[in-house]
Design a protein around this nucleic acid. Structure first.
Length: 788
DNA sequence: TACTAAGCTCTTTTT
DNA sequence: GAGCTTAGTA
């Protein structure tokens, strides 16, 4: 048992105590993954069949990493562990028992986009006001109901929920929910939440199934237990009921998924369910330097709802946490980029040892711009994932339809794409018929196709049916790659993309090719499927691939890219579980972090604080916090205060950078300062009244384009920081950036200095600038579409 | 029916 | 800034 030497005493105990209910409270950086892997290895060494061990994580990445590490200790048998995300493991359990709850074996999995699209059609069909019943809102409502195991009937019978909806003047949510559930069922489709909800239904309604699982899984381990919701909690509890060898690992201080239904009480109250529980606390942080651990501790101590614990480290004290303010979001990016560059050269570091973290995905843009300008390679996580791109979803929709022709979202997507003359009126008729009979549209379509002559106006539709049927016959014989390639050619999808010679078109084509490659690799390689945990007897059919792909996320895509020399950019949520030598956290501003949506309730604010805690504890050696005094968001300039969280950190851990060198940007460059301070240093603008130049559409007095006045939200303290004469200038499509600048010159006189960094002559531009006396200060231009 | 341009909205985190 | 809707045209 020599490998256990690598563990400290609490870790060792947690590993060796394999029997009965166990809770491991593992502080940030305390070696949680290590304990989990050694524990599983330990259970295997006691002679347990890997098939009897169930290990649940929240991300494929965590599962994959753990499997690899266990394989390193315990060898090949690690491949047969039931290890994966809640969603993928439950999907696998559901596949095997789908018919018991009335679903086809190859049920589809709707992603958020599919779900919202379906909700939108239902709202339209029910003739409800689409402003009130916005898809996102309704989806969240339904999702949180499902996460609390509330089905449509229970929803309709819950006085509390109905009252909530009524007071939000959206009384029809329960009807939408009911229709939505019906339509998903009719389509043989489950959304993400259904994977939990239906698993729960399966094991509560079919005791034989529950029994089988209960006896199969002698050992159950759950990672990130603080992020489980009610559905997950109940399912785990039922599965563990026979053997009671349940081990949960988590850190209440890192519970950051409340918005997704995660209930921190699951970990705080875990002992109530298991009185014989053994608890192990891992409090020694191996990851970070002293100041970082201390600052993190001082922050999280402000939260009331948590376990009593003291995180400590034996590591050296290290450097203090640096705190820096920038004049604008662009300046913030430039500061980070140049600081990063300098630190890298001075300390001989690899780019991959740096991460830039932020609260919202939208913050990545100015950061990316700054990095590109300095030629710093970066990898950005999140945003549009590969599998959410339009062309990929189109292709997948064909494949989904082949496997499950009832899948109405897939059908809707591609029945007329590429266009084949099946227009809106035709579709409306089909939907109406299907609705009347409550049958999948496909049933209707095949009925039409099997008649000797097609009904009026349905010839094209019948052609479509025969095409899909042809694909189906093929997929019975060939593997996924063959089918996909055939589909790409015979639907016209391929031709459509090849003909598009624009930059976007070419990249779309490349994406399709990448998808085909991924499919081929899937059919050939022998690696463990991270989404299903299967390797031998792996399903190489189309159905297998779709199952595999439905639950992948962006973070899973290019695992081989992981060691590339690139700076990582991601939201803090995505950074959970990761660590970096040098970390920047950008955008520490009130209303952004904490988010304005989380400032109402104490619980929400505590979650934001935990999120900041997660951000801080990602850093090993050096942590830099930044905020901007001006932020351009969604077409408006904001003037946020520094985040309250900054003042919650133990000041003895902080090193305030006195705005060194970054206070006053040189004039006439993008991102120039907009502050109008009454004091000595600032600029003074004579005219504070907003002006609008030009008229609309090039047809009026201004032949070059139009200018739109944007109302400016001023700071509560009106004494400073209010931009004067903010104008947005939008050249029309015949005007490129240079021409746009020329227009500005003409309008404001030759003496005015106006320039942009870089050159983008092929781009349509949105230009924002202010007039300062006789001068124009360019604040920002944003590249838009490339002109033909 | 298909395509394009213009207009409007809203602003968090994700398996 | 992007996604979606609407209006207008071929």
């Amino acid at each position: 048992m020599s490998h256990l030497d690598a563990l400290n005493e609490p870790q060792r105990q947690a590993v060796l105590c394999t029997q009965g209910p166990v809770m491991i409270v593992a502080g940030a950086g305390s070696g949680k993954t290590r304990v989990l892997t050694y524990r599983i290895a330990q259970i295997l060494q006691q002679g347990t069949d890997p098939f009897q061990i169930l290990a649940l994580t929240f991300t494929n990445k965590a599962a994959r990493e753990m499997r690899n590490r266990i394989e390193g200790i315990a060898g090949q048998q690690a491949r047969h562990l039931w290890m994966g995300t809640f969603h993928s493991i439950f999907a696998r359990l559901l596949r095997g028992n789908a018919e018991k709850i009335g679903y086809p074996t190859h049920f589809s999995i709707y992603d958020t986009e599919d779900s919202k699209s379906l909700i939108k059609t239902i709202v339209a069909e029910m003739q409800l006001e689409s402003d009130l019943y916005k898809a996102g809102y309704v989806y969240n409502r339904i999702s949180s109901a499902k996460n609390s195991l509330i089905g449509p009937e229970q929803y309709a019978n819950s006085a509390e929920l109905l009252a909530q909806d009524a007071s939000a003047s959206r009384p029809h949510i329960h009807q939408i929910y009911s229709a939505y559930a019906q339509r998903c069922f009719r389509a043989g489709a489950m959304d993400f939440d259904d994977l939990l909800l239906k698993t729960y239904a399966l094991i509560t309604e079919h005791s034989d199934v529950l029994n089988r699982f209960q006896h199969q899984f002698r050992y159950i381990l759950v990672d990130e237990y603080q992020d489980t919701n009610l559905a997950q909690y109940r399912i785990i509890k039922m599965l563990a009921a026979a053997h009671r060898n349940l081990c949960v690992v988590g850190d209440d201080a890192q519970s950051i998924y409340g918005f997704r239904g995660a209930n921190i009480q699951n970990i705080l109250k875990f002992k109530d369910d298991y009185p014989e529980l053994k608890t192990f606390q891992l409090e020694q942080n191996y990851r970070s330097t002293g100041y970082i651990v201390q600052a993190a501790g001082s922050l999280i101590a402000r939260n009331i709802h948590q376990f009593e614990k003291k995180l400590w480290t034996g590591n050296e004290q290290g450097a203090k946490i640096r705190l820096s303010s920038a004049v604008s979001d662009g300046e913030e990016g430039r500061f980070i980029a140049s600081d990063l560059m300098e630190a890298r050269l001075r300390n001989q570091l690899n780019y991959s040892e740096f991460a830039i973290l932020y609260r919202t995905n939208a913050q990545s843009r100015p950061l990316e711009e700054a990095l590109r300008r300095q030629n710093i390679p970066y990898r950005i996580y999140g945003g549009l994932s590969f599998y959410q791109r339009k062309e990929i979803k189109d292709m997948l929709a064909y494949l989904r339809l082949i496997v499950n022709p009832s899948d109405e979202e897939a059908l809707r997507r591609i029945i007329n794409y590429p266009t084949r003359g099946i227009g809106k009126t035709t579709l409306d008729r089909l939907y109406a018929w299907a609705g009347e009979r409550n049958e999948p549209i496909w049933t209707l379509l095949t009925a039409m196709a099997d008649q000797p002559t097609a009904p009026q106006g349905m010839n094209k539709v019948v052609d479509f049916v025969f095409m899909i049927r042809g694909f189906q016959t093929m997929s019975a014989r060939e593997d996924a790659y063959q089918v996909a390639q055939h589909v790409s050619k015979h639907t016209g999808l391929h031709r459509l993309l090849v003909e598009d010679k624009s930059v976007e078109g070419i990249s779309r084509m490349q994406n399709i090719e990448e998808l085909l490659n991924a499919i081929r690799e899937y059919t050939e390689e022998d690696e463990v499927d991270p989404a299903t945990g299967e390797v031998e007897g792996r399903d190489r059919s189309l159905a297998g691939f779709l199952q595999h792909v439905a639950l992948l996320t962006d973070a899973d895509l290019d695992a081989d890219d992981e060691n590339a020399e690139k700076v990582s950019l991601m939201t803090i949520h995505q950074a959970k579980g990761l660590e970096f030598s040098h970390v920047y956290v950008a955008g520490l501003e009130e209303t952004l972090f904490p988010s304005s949506m989380s400032m109402e309730s104490r619980a929400d604010l505590e979650e934001e604080r935990r999120l900041f805690y997660v951000a801080i504890t990602r850093a090993e050696k050096r942590l830099t916090l930044t905020y901007a005094q001006t932020r351009f968001r969604h077409g408006n300039f904001l003037y946020p205060e520094p985040s309250r969280f900054l003042s919650e950190l133990d000041p003895s851990c902080l090193d305030w950078q006195k705005n060194s060198g970054h206070q006053a940007a040189p004039p006439f460059r993008m991102g120039s300062t907009i502050t109008r301070s009454g004091s000595a240093s600032g600029h003074s603008y004579g005219n504070t009244r907003a002006q609008t130049y030009g008229s609309s559409n090039g047809k009026g007095s201004n032949p070059y384009g139009k200018a739109v006045h944007k109302p400016v939200r001023s700071q509560p303290t009106p004494s400073n920081s209010e931009p004067a004469n903010l104008v947005q200038f939008e050249p029309d499509d015949t005007t490129n950036l240079k021409a746009g600048m020329k227009v500005l010159h003409q309008r404001f006189g030759k003496g005015d200095v106006l320039s942009v960094e870089g050159d983008a002559p092929d781009h349509k531009a949105t230009i924002r600038f202010i007039q300062q006396g006789e001068k124009i200060i360019l604040l920002k231009f944003a590249r838009m579409k490339i002109i033909g």
